[in-house]
Structure formats: C-alpha cells, structure tokens
Amino acid sequence: MRSFVALAVAAIGAMLLQTTVFHALPLVPIVPDVMLVLAVYLGIRHQTASGAVGAFVLGYFVDTFSGTLLGLNAFALTAVYLGVQGVARHLWLERGLPLMVVVFCAALGREVAAVALLATVAGRAPVWHHVLRYGLAGAFAASLVAPAVFAVVTWERRQLGLP
C-alpha cells in the first residue's frame, strides 16, 4: 500500500511538472519526460507483476493528459518497463552513467513503440520525422533528469518507511 502511495505521489508530481511547470520555464525548450523515468525506475527496482501493473497505470495516467488515443502511452511505458526489467536482471543500472544511458535508450524505445503502434494498430500516419526531430533531444533531456528523479523517489520512499 505504501509503495502504491509513493508511486502515486511521484506520478502526480511528475505530471504537474510536465503539464505546467516545465512549460512555464523559458530556458526549457524540450519538456523532459519524467513519467518515462518513473517507468524505468519501476523496471529497475520493482521486477514484479505489480511493477508491470504500475507501468501500465503510469501510461494510462499520461494518456489522460496527452493526445486523444487512450492506451498509446500505456502501451509504450509497459513496453519500456518490460525492456528495462529484462536488462536490469543482468546489469547494474541503479545510478550514474549506466542509469542515464538506459533512460536514453528507453526514451528512444518508447518513441519507437508508440509510433509502431500508431502505424500498425491504429492505422495513423507515421510520425517518423517527429521522432528524429524531437526523439533524440527528448531522450537526452530525460536522461539528464533521471538521476535527480531517482534520488527524489528514493528519498520519498525513505520518508514513507520503505526500503
């Protein structure tokens, strides 16, 4: 239950950052995808069925505040979770450069998963040139904020008495 509260608080905070605060900052041309970093966090620290459910709910939460297609981000973040937890079983990714690299790759993977789903399942026009233009910059921004997000979530869990 406390784990759920920790994730919910982190997700609400991340969503407020992404929908209001980052948009108001004049020196932030690309909004870092903090929700993606939370999905990566789940993939590294929660390799359980509830971790997978958490990633799906995070994506659904993003779907409420992004675009019109319900399930697009739920699909992408669940895919990211699945990929990251598979890698995290074999490699140490907790902090520093390994963490930033995995978040960078996860951000690119997320864009590819979303575009692939749009192109195949929903029959929408592919947006590859968008991925090329914003995907790399967005992945770079997400990897920059990842250590800070991990530190904040770890601190938050400690406040709630979680390991």
Partner: peptide, 30 residues
C-alpha cells in the same frame, strides 16, 4: 512479470484501437 506485461500491452493496444476511431473519449478512469 512477462505475462503481466504482455497482458498490459495487449490491453493497451485494444484501447488504442477502440479509441482510434473518434477523438471524443468518456473513460471513467481518465
């Protein structure tokens, strides 16, 4: 973990197909 994730992916894909036809949405969780 894999089976739960696969279920989540399938559910998300179904949601995308269902909501892909109209921009209007009425999901209660949303």
């Amino acid at each position: 973990v894999f089976l739960t994730s696969a279920f989540g992916l399938a559910l998300a894909a179904i949601l995308v197909v269902q909501t892909g036809h109209t921009p209007a949405r009425s999901d209660r969780l949303g």
